[in-house]
């Protein structure tokens, strides 16, 4: 080494002039009040889905009131109908609370299934590449190119309208879009050096997928899970609305809107309440997702004059 003479001097200076820390400050996930509001509403409905049947004033199928389409806060011998009654003289509030379990539960299970299928195949296709990827992608394109509600109609009509079939249908349809996202994410991550570093180390496929790719895809996939859940809620509600989803007497928000639609003509809000329930849940999820992803961009745009 040529710097023998200066090296002692340098050691001293090193303490004074450390290499400057140029790493960006750690980003923490912090929600704005809008996001917190979303979390509160979603949490409320999740709690309702879990304990709803125990706290609802009436059973979902109880035909108890004296009349249909009673306005809010009507009272009779059975009690008070805080949101009024529906076309079959049932308590709307109770049905909405019961419906939370049906609507959210079914959607959640369907989305979860869609994710298990979509992520496994999508990441698998990205990692495997070649013919496997080619065949899976083309098949997926074909499913994606069928409008979801159309595909749902066909399957439900063919196989009937039981809850398991509804869940399978929704998960199959949405697995296709999850596949697309997971595959794209997987492909992006596969070309980053650390994946190549693992492969050139000799790591097997399982290590590469579980340790290198998945942890880096987790955050975007989690965000997308929220959006996908919203789509599934809307999809199942739409099917129910068309009379092809969840069958009576089970309460679910989509069919409640449909069943009470005629009440609108009499000035009853019976179909509005379940519609609001759907909207509050889906909007809240979107608010959370927006809040998480909003931080990533747009700041330079504020510098425009």
């Amino acid at each position: 080494m040529t710097d023998n003479i200066t090296s002692t001097g340098e050691e001293e200076e090193k303490t004074i002039y450390d290499e400057l820390h140029d790493a960006p400050p750690k980003k923490k996930l912090k929600l704005t009040w809008v996001g917190k509001l979303g979390v509160t509403v979603v949490a409320f409905w999740v709690v309702m889905a879990l304990i709803g049947p125990y706290i609802a004033p009436f059973h979902e199928a109880d035909i108890i009131a004296d009349d249909s389409y009673l306005p809010a806060f009507s009272t009779d011998s059975e009690g008070t109908y805080i949101l009024g009654t529906d076309y079959l003289e049932r308590d709307i509030l109770s049905r909405i609370i019961w419906g939370a379990r049906t609507t959210i539960g079914i959607s959640f299970v369907a989305t979860l299934l869609a994710y298990m299928m979509g992520v496994t195949l999508g990441i698998g296709a990205a990692v495997a590449g070649g013919w496997t990827d080619m065949i899976l992608s083309r098949a997926n394109d074909a499913i994606l190119s069928l409008p979801s509600i159309m595909l749902g109609l066909l399957i439900v009509v063919a196989l009937g309208t039981s809850i398991p079939i509804l869940i399978l249908t929704a998960s199959l349809i949405y697995a296709a879009s999850v596949f697309r996202i997971a595959r794209a994410l997987g492909q992006d991550i596969m070309v980053i050096d650390f994946v190549e570093a693992a492969r050139v180390r000799g790591e097997g496929l399982w290590w590469v997928i579980s340790r290198e790719v998945l942890p880096n895809a987790a955050m975007p996939l989690a965000t997308d899970f929220g959006l996908r859940l919203v789509f599934v809620v809307l999809f199942i509600s739409s099917l129910s609305f068309l009379g092809l989803g969840i069958q009576p007497p089970a309460a679910d928000w989509g069919s409640m809107v449909r069943q009470n639609l005629s009440g609108l003509g009499y000035g009853s809000y019976a179909s509005v309440w379940p519609a609001l329930a759907i909207a509050s849940f889906t909007i809240s999820i979107n608010l959370i997702v927006d809040d998480i992803s909003a931080k990533s961009g747009g700041s330079l745009a504020k510098k425009m004059i």
Binding site: I192, D193, F194, A197, R199, V200, R201, G202, R211, E212, P215, N216, A218
Partner: peptide
């Protein structure tokens, strides 16, 4: 091709990437 190399052959040759940012998994 590295896929045909044995583990000890891979071990003896180690590649150091230019960009440490992308060469180190940010989630590990």
């Amino acid at each position: 091709n590295m896929l045909s190399r044995s583990r000890s052959e891979l071990q003896k040759l180690q590649f150091v990437y230019q960009m440490a940012d992308t060469a180190l998994n940010p989630r590990q």
